[in-house]
């Protein structure tokens, strides 16, 4: 009998707690606004803040309706931190209203601190029910420089010194082992006449941008299609020392080769000029490229 009675008592307690949570929202429902809430978030611009320095905690709400203010917004308790500023911006646009409240805070005591979620009560326009909309909690770590330096001196320095001593000892042992093995090995290894070095192979000269242009030009002259023109233009731009995605002005500004300039301009004309003038542009590009390659 004892077990069902305990279960009943637990259920009653839970129900009472839940109704206590629900009641304030229900009781205020008459005074609540009906809103489509698209977003409610909270974030800090720094997650680690030394004591005495300031940081900002921004709460951003977005509702689909045009509202002048969101006075229902309850900002989180900031504990022992000094509240230096509280600024609220409301901007309404055709898609709704953005409300941004920015708190400027200065922590006074070190340690981790979690801001409870900012929230507001409204009638959820989607469900037509009174609801509490809450943002995410935000955690910041407040550091104290004095404590940090003290711990560096008393904890970190001895630790580093110990690790260094151990590393030096290990290195000395390893060096000794390598020396012993090398001395023994020298007696056993038979002397083998050294093989004749391979005949030197002449290395191919590195390809230059001019070679790339020459290849692309050959391909363009045999079939002056769009793809070949793109390749030739890219090779010319590379010869001017600019990366892909650069424009003619970049290429002209970058190259010191005066002879390359008319070739670059001709490539631009051929690539983007009107179809009716394409033959002339293509001929102009071919002549200019040929002259430059010579």
């Amino acid at each position: 009998m004892a077990r069902p009675r305990r279960a009943l008592a637990l259920a009653l307690t839970l129900a009472a707690a839940l109704s206590a949570l629900w009641l304030p929202v229900e009781a205020q429902a008459q005074g609540l606004r009906s809103l489509h809430v698209d977003a409610l978030s909270m974030r800090a611009d720094r997650t680690r803040v030394p004591v005495g320095e300031t940081f900002h905690l921004a709460i951003h709400a977005r509702v689909r309706e045009r509202v002048a203010a969101l006075d229902e917004l309850v900002v989180p308790d900031v504990g022992s931190m000094h509240l230096l500023g509280d600024e609220r911006h409301v901007s309404a646009g055709p898609g709704g209203t953005d409300i941004v409240e920015t708190l400027t805070l200065e922590p006074t005591t070190p340690g981790p601190f979690t801001f409870p979620a900012a929230y507001f009560d409204a009638i959820d326009a989607n469900t037509k029910k009174p609801s509490r909309f809450a943002a995410n909690p935000v955690r910041v770590v407040v550091t104290a420089q004095a404590v940090y330096y003290a711990s560096t001196r008393t904890v970190l320095f001895p630790l580093v010194a110990r690790v260094l001593v151990m590393a030096v000892a290990l290195f000395a042992v390893l060096a000794l082992v390598v020396l012993v093995v090398a001395l023994r090995g020298r007696k056993r290894i038979p002397v083998v006449p050294a093989a004749a070095p391979p005949a030197p192979v002449p290395a191919a000269p590195p390809r230059t941008p001019r070679d790339e242009v020459a290849d692309a030009f050959r391909a363009y002259r045999s079939a002056p299609a769009d793809g070949a023109l793109r390749r030739l233009r890219a090779a010319l731009f590379a010869a001017a020392g600019v990366p892909p995605g650069a424009t003619l002005r970049d290429a002209l500004a970058n190259t010191g080769d005066a002879a390359l300039r008319p070739v670059l301009s001709a490539a631009e004309h051929a690539a983007f000029g009107p179809a009716r003038a394409r033959d002339d542009a293509s001929r102009e590009l071919s002549d200019a490229t040929e002259a430059w390659l010579r």
Partner: peptide, 11 residues
């Protein structure tokens, strides 16, 4: 010029 170039758009 008789044609628009990428530089025109970018500028």
């Amino acid at each position: 010029r008789s044609f628009a170039a990428p530089d025109d758009v970018r500028d």
